[in-house]
């Protein structure tokens, strides 16, 4: 009997009642379908595993090329030198010169995105009339979909000239304008995640607060925000990790010259801008210049990984149970 080889969990009633009268080809068809089902499941599993392979490949490639790089350049120099001039005769490999640019632009971006994103989230979730929300949410989503290169163009040819009118000594490439535009770019991510977290706070908590005579602002600040803190924190973390990994805006508007400085008015290169600069040139495969971009990329990946992990723990730490 086929059923002993392929046990059915829930045999159809007709099968149990009249096992002998089945058509000849039935079990073969059944077997075929079983096999097809297994094949489909395996295919779907393979599709899901592609993401695991991607991560493994990213780590493998970055580590592989970085190991070759660190054979030439001591790790201590990499972490403490404040000059980054890998393509000069007098080569220096101090990642700090790139990290300072990344840090400065990220901080400027966060100073824009966190307050504005939070205000927008509170407004949309607690204050805005239904009609405003229905229009504003898709509008913000659209802003999040604008290509970063367009933001880069905007930073270089609109924001920088405007800033130069206010502060004439500002150079054409500067971290301030790149950071500001990056902040605007991140607002939709921060506001939409924060708003989702706030909307997830149960209505009865707001109603209790209103019943005590609290205004909408008091309810938002003392009831909804604390309850949604985990979501807010993770939206900020996502914002940071976006800003750290953002490439085109800084590559276009902040210049590509490594510069160990935390002054946003100066031009500087970020880790990402350096990778773009090298990729634009014609570096032979396997040269030290080629390997630097993988070492820089590994640093970038580790930084974003740290933020992702911190975000994960913040979510767990502040999780409110209702």
């Amino acid at each position: 009997m086929m059923s002993s080889i392929l046990p059915l969990k829930h045999p159809p009633a007709t099968l149990a009642a009249t096992p002998g009268t089945l058509p000849q080809g039935w079990s073969a068809a059944r077997l075929r379908r079983r096999l097809a089902e297994r094949a489909i499941e395996t295919l779907l599993l393979l599709a899901a595993l592609v993401s695991v392979f991607t991560t493994a490949a990213i780590v493998a490639i970055l580590v592989w090329e970085s190991v070759v790089f660190f054979r030439t350049v001591p790790l201590l120099d990499f972490l403490t030198d404040t000059q980054w001039t890998p393509l000069f005769d007098d080569a220096h490999f101090g990642i700090l010169a790139l990290l300072s640019g990344t840090l400065t632009t990220t901080i400027v971006a966060l100073l824009v995105a966190v307050p504005l994103g939070t205000i927008l989230a509170i407004y949309l979730s607690e204050f805005a009339p239904f009609r405003v929300r229905e229009v504003a949410k898709p509008f913000l989503e659209l802003l999040g979909g604008i290509p970063t290169i367009v933001y880069g163009y905007f930073a270089l040819l609109f924001v920088t000239p405007v800033l130069q009118k206010i502060y004439p000594e500002l150079p054409g490439f500067n971290m301030l304008s790149a950071g500001l535009v990056m902040g605007i770019m991140i607002i939709p991510y921060v506001s939409s995640l924060s708003e989702d977290a706030m909307r997830a706070v149960p209505m009865h908590m707001r109603e209790a607060s209103y019943a005590m005579g609290a205004t909408r602002l008091q309810t938002a600040v003392f009831v909804v925000t604390p309850a949604a803190l985990s979501g807010l924190a993770s939206s900020y973390i996502l914002g940071i990790s976006r800003a750290v990994g953002e490439t085109m805006v800084v590559a276009i508007a902040a210049g590509m010259q490594p510069n160990f400085s935390f002054d946003p008015r100066e031009p500087a290169a970020t880790i990402t801008a350096y990778i773009v600069q090298v990729a634009l040139g014609d570096l032979p495969h396997g040269s030290i210049g080629y390997q630097t971009i993988f070492a820089a990329g590994l640093t970038l990946l580790l930084i974003t990984l740290v933020f992702n992990i911190v975000g994960h723990f913040l979510r767990k730490r502040f999780r409110e149970a209702y």
């Binding site: 991607t54 490949a57 990213i58 490639i61 970055l62 990790s241 750290v244 990994g245 953002e246 490439t247 990402t272 990778i275 773009v276 990729a279 971009i293 993988f294 990329g297 970038l300 990946l301 974003t304």
Partner: peptide, 8 residues
């Protein structure tokens, strides 16, 4: 970050 995919 998308640039990491570029390196991959």
């Amino acid at each position: 970050p998308s640039i990491i995919y570029g390196l991959l």
